[in-house]
Simulated scan of single mutants.
Amino acid sequence: MQALDALPLSALRGRSSAKWRAYPEDVLPLFVAETDFPLAPAITDRLRAAVEIGDTGYTAPVSGVREAYAGFAGRRFGWHPDPGLMRTTCDVMMGVVEILRKVARPGDRVIVMPPVYPPFFDAVAEAGLVVDPVPLIDGENGPEMDLAGVDAALSAGARVVLLCHPHNPTGTVHGRKALQRLADLAAAHDAVVISDEIHAPLSQPDADFVPFLAASDTAAAVGFALVSASKAFNLAGLKCAIMVAATPDRFATLRSLPVEVEWRTGIFGVHAAVAAFTDSDDWLDGLLIRLDLNRRLLGDLLAEHLPLARYRIPPAGFLGWVDLSAYGWGDDPGRRILRDARVAFHFGPQFGAEGRGHVRINFGCDPEVLREAVARVGALARG
């Protein structure tokens, strides 16, 4: 199996997505979570066939995507969710908001674990709820959940835990025991866990990813999962996510959602997700090899050009969480880097107060692009 190669910059700059239109052409974009690789061939073929026959209408209630995901989860994670306990929607965060509205009352508190994906804060507010931050803590093997803090927040009245698993931006893959303990805490406090697992297909083989709903019978009883092909297969614009329950009681909540929640699923998103989940394992394996090489390359480049930076090789994903506090570039170093080095990283403070002094670097790109980006920032550091 060979590492997947990225498209050349000349081709990428022809894209109209946010990554390639947010900044002028002299800026190297390594911020938003889009990758620079060609689509998996099965996805391209499926979308081309749909366009050729004008299959661009409404998504059918029976689309095959739930069954496709169940097969994928069985092969990749050893988990066999029931397609009959799933519903689709537009994207993961829309699913989070709709579930929050069903399981909590206005004003209830929702635990999030910063530094965390910025839309988590917005989704809680959109649902009429209040963010209750319980930051990750430094563990023996990297960032981990503060389970004592979660217990205290639940004891004080928080009703929901919004879990990011694998975690964005740190790439943390929560272990089975931690997930089981989280589920036990939720059950003891009659709370709910909503697990965003959009980055799960990008877990490296040695990360031993365990879906939250598969961690224990208790986890199955207290939780929901949100999954999608969009991050691993670069399909964010096609709009298809799956809301997963593991018990009939939890599925009753999904079944009670307005029918329009499911009608928002994009038919191109379904076509692409089915192809991704059923016929693209080899492509995904090649991507994981490339990301493994790139995550290690990023560490080497930082050691060479920014030796005061703090970075932990992430077990999952294509995002590097880097602490640049030692360079004295303020709470939001990405702003200066953008202005003076013409490199766009994601601004750390957007991930919560814990992101001060940090940037998030998207290494889902050609190694030469990564080298150039870090070299530019290194030149800035050297003055």
Rank of each mutant, 00 (worst) to 15 (best):
A381R: 05
W321I: 02
V161I: 10
G139Q: 07
G78V: 06
S195C: 08
A326S: 08
P106A: 15
D26M: 04
E98F: 01
E197T: 00
V374M: 03
F277Y: 01
H271Q: 14
L30H: 03
M145Y: 13
G334E: 07
R46Q: 10
I267V: 08
A6R: 03
S325M: 10
K239R: 12
A6L: 12
D281C: 05
C90Q: 15
P333M: 08
R255Q: 13
A200S: 07
I361M: 12
R66T: 07
V51G: 12
S10A: 14
L179V: 10
F224L: 14
L297F: 06
M93I: 14
A127H: 12
R336H: 09
T265V: 15
A125E: 12
L226Q: 06
R376G: 10
P24W: 14
R181P: 13
V32R: 01
D196Q: 15
L338K: 04
L288W: 05
Y58F: 11
G223V: 14
P248K: 07
R295N: 06
P115A: 01
L12P: 03
D5R: 14
F120V: 07
H358M: 09
P119W: 06
P133F: 10
A273L: 09
L380C: 02
P248L: 07
C240Q: 07
V97N: 02
L182Q: 02
D108T: 15
G128C: 02
V134T: 00
P211E: 10
F277T: 00
A127S: 15
L9W: 15
R13D: 04
G269R: 00
C365S: 07
Q350D: 14
P83F: 00
A276Q: 05
P333C: 09
R159Q: 10
E140N: 04
L47A: 14
A241H: 11
E262W: 06
F31R: 14
G64K: 12
G352K: 07
H346D: 07
P83W: 00
K177M: 14
G149D: 01
A276T: 06
L30Q: 02
P258T: 09
L380S: 02
D292M: 01
D285W: 12
P307G: 04
G355Y: 02
D340R: 08
D146N: 08
T253S: 05
E98D: 00
R87W: 03
L129R: 10
Y23L: 05
G64E: 08
A344H: 02
R296H: 11
A70G: 06
G237I: 09
R66W: 09
Y311S: 01
L254W: 00
G348I: 12
R76N: 09
G142Y: 13
L297W: 02
P211D: 09
T265E: 08
V62A: 14
P8M: 02
A326Y: 09
A341W: 06
R371G: 04
V244K: 00
A303K: 07
D282A: 11
V222G: 01
G78S: 13
R371Y: 10
R336Q: 09
K102H: 08
